[in-house]
């Protein structure tokens, strides 16, 4: 095990604490699966964009969004296996270094949605170590409320890019489905961010 600490946070409470009193300048891209339910229950807003498929693409999507919107703050909220599937994006973030991007990875060491099989982070893979080795300058490993609060401050105001590994338990809180249609999800996000004229582009 590379994650040495015994303490682990309950995922939903951790995400809700991270997103409390949410700043209107914050944009979230959440990847499948439970990260989406966590973000949805924390407060529904058009400025959440959910990827219910294309596993591994949530963080690249957040990177593209962050570079297109340098005056906003962007969080990629992803599970450990979702991020690991497209792991090399951390190297690209380390190259481009978008100051407004935070990757927050909820790490339960499991493939949670598929039956709780042990994932690579549960055995040998240290995603925070990979992030640091990829040149991401601010990396935190978080497993208590104070760590969440610091991560929240870094995501909203700190120099980015930021990588936060949130160590969570394997517990699976109830699913709350968001809008599942990606066309609707994208249209409402773009309208909320860019104004109604964006729908005519």
């Amino acid at each position: 095990m590379t994650t040495g600490s015994q303490n682990r946070l309950e995922r939903r409470g951790a995400v809700h604490r991270l997103l409390r009193d949410r700043d209107p300048n914050l944009l979230i891209v959440a990847g499948l699966g439970s990260a989406i339910w966590d973000a949805e229950t924390a407060g529904e807003t058009p400025l959440n964009f959910y990827l219910l498929g294309a596993m591994g693409s949530a963080t690249p999507t957040a990177l593209g969004l962050a570079t297109a919107q340098p005056d906003k703050r962007v969080i990629a909220l992803v599970g450990d296996a979702e991020l690991a599937m497209g792991l090399y994006v951390l190297a690209t973030i380390g190259w481009r270094k978008p100051a407004n991007l935070s990757v927050i990875c909820l790490d339960n060491g499991r493939f949670g949605e598929t039956g709780g099989q042990v994932s690579h982070t549960g055995v040998n893979l240290d995603l925070a170590g990979v992030a640091a080795a990829s040149g991401i300058p601010t990396v935190r490993r978080v497993n208590d409320d104070a760590g969440i609060d610091e991560l929240r401050d870094l995501a909203m105001a700190g120099p980015g890019p930021v990588f936060g590994l949130v160590e969570i338990t394997a517990a699976m809180p109830p699913v709350q489905m968001p809008i599942r249609n990606g066309v609707i999800g994208m249209a409402r996000f773009r309208e909320a961010l860019l104004g109604p004229q964006a729908l005519k582009e």
Binding site: L27, V29, F49, A54, G56, S57, A58, T59, P60, T61, A62, L63, G64, L65, A66, T67, A68, Q69, K72, G86, V89, T92, M186, F189, R190, L193, L194, A198, E201
Partner: peptide
Amino acid sequence: VGICVGAWLGGR
């Protein structure tokens, strides 16, 4: 793919 879709999401 994700980066280009993300850029479009952000208006670019």
